[in-house]
Amino acid sequence: MKKRSAIKTDLFADTHHRDKLDTLGDPLAEIEACIDFAALAAEVDRIAPRPVSVQGGRPPYPTETMVRILVLKRLYNLSDEQMEYQLLDRMSYKRFCGLSQATNIPDRTTVWTFENRIGEVGAQVIFDGVTTQLLKKGFIARGGQIIDATLVPAPKQSFSKEDKEQLKADAMPADWQPGKRRQKDLDATWTKKHGKSQHGYKLSVNVDKKHKFIRKIVTDTASTHDSQHFDAVIDPANTSRDVYADRGYPSEEREQWLKANGYRNRIQRKGKRNKPLSEAQQGRNHRIAKTRARVEHVFGAIEQMGGKLLRTIGQARANFAMTMMAACYNLKRLAYFQRVGITAF
């Protein structure tokens, strides 16, 4: 007797699979439901107009499609090559990007070209566009602001002694071919954290206490001290005057500035040589730490988005990637609020 196969075939199998995805809960569908990607695309086109195709050439993909692809890349920390493969392979990715019925899928070169077209300014426009939509939904900055920075690792570089000497003199090693030059990151810097050497870049953020959205960002190299970004990420729009930060930020000048501008100083104190913190100061630090720790949740969520390791060369591309990290974190955070039914008020 012939055995029946357990696998059934159906001309409408793709439709059944899509319905199943909706039943299980597609996280990309949740993001799509709470963000107007057409509005983000319009802002990108405003600062980086779509190129006009030469006669007979293939027209560029819609900007909205490409913005969605950039979001996918950052949400899952994919390379251009991996992005091309996943767009061909994953039903949810194709649906999110509006490519379910498309015969031609953007390849790695198309993704790379689009990123170069919009550049750092384009990434900032996407971040600002997401922020604008948060505000329209009522998610204004509330409860105080928390300022902190995180190191974003970049691939470590190997240089010979002769190379280092020439680079230190602002000269390019003569034996470096163009291909080798493109693979050398001369912008990333080294720093020490908790006694360990770290190589890469730095992302400074301002997070509101109430909703834990990233409100302002500054990108830089790893060796730049956290405190240098403090003034740039202060958010005057926060409804509370409390400003929280860790021991890397206090100074008499900063304390005076905060007081003069009507802010309440919630920056942790730092002990000095031969002058340790008093019991009262330690208690104050402990109370502040409970709130300040909320920013670590933000960095942890970014880490879960495929990790923070950059796949780029040079500061311009690193700035692009870090800005997209912040924008995509806010997207995921907003989708979470919508899923669990948290409102702005």
Rank of each mutant, 00 (worst) to 15 (best):
N274Y: 08
D220S: 15
T63R: 01
E252W: 06
E165K: 15
A245W: 00
R273Q: 15
Q198L: 13
V243A: 01
F114G: 02
G129C: 00
A301L: 10
E64T: 10
R46F: 13
K275E: 14
F299V: 08
T103F: 08
W257I: 06
T291E: 10
P60H: 10
R182K: 15
N77L: 02
Q281Y: 08
S278C: 08
K209L: 12
E279Y: 11
R108H: 12
T9M: 13
K192F: 13
I288D: 00
P62S: 09
A42N: 04
E120H: 08
Y61M: 08
H17T: 11
Q304S: 13
I217F: 03
R58F: 06
A318E: 09
D235W: 01
R68V: 08
K193F: 02
T65K: 06
G283I: 14
L99T: 03
L28M: 05
V130Y: 04
I140M: 04
F159V: 03
R68A: 00
V111G: 09
S278Q: 10
V340H: 05
D185R: 00
L99Y: 04
L186D: 11
S100Q: 13
Q133T: 07
F114K: 03
T65I: 10
E255I: 09
V44A: 02
E279V: 14
A154F: 05
L11T: 11
R108M: 10
L134W: 05
R294H: 14
G25T: 07
F230V: 01
I105L: 12
G341R: 06
R58G: 04
L309E: 13
F139A: 00
A141D: 06
T63C: 02
G195P: 05
K2Y: 15
I217K: 01
F37Y: 11
G56W: 06
E84W: 04
K156T: 10
I35S: 05
T343H: 14
P59A: 11
D26R: 07
G307M: 00
V44C: 02
G200Y: 00
A232C: 03
F37R: 00
D45K: 05
P27V: 03
D246T: 03
V125H: 02
M91K: 11
D231V: 09
I35T: 02
G248N: 11
R50I: 14
P236E: 11
D107W: 01
N206T: 10
R273E: 14
V130P: 03
L21M: 14
R269F: 15
Q228E: 15
F230R: 00
E120M: 10
G129I: 07
H297Y: 08
C97V: 08
A327F: 05
V218Y: 07
H297Q: 12
Q256G: 08
R68L: 02
E279N: 10
K308G: 02
D26V: 01
G57T: 14
C97Q: 04
K272R: 12
K136Q: 13
F230K: 01
M305C: 14
T239F: 00
A41W: 01
A39T: 09
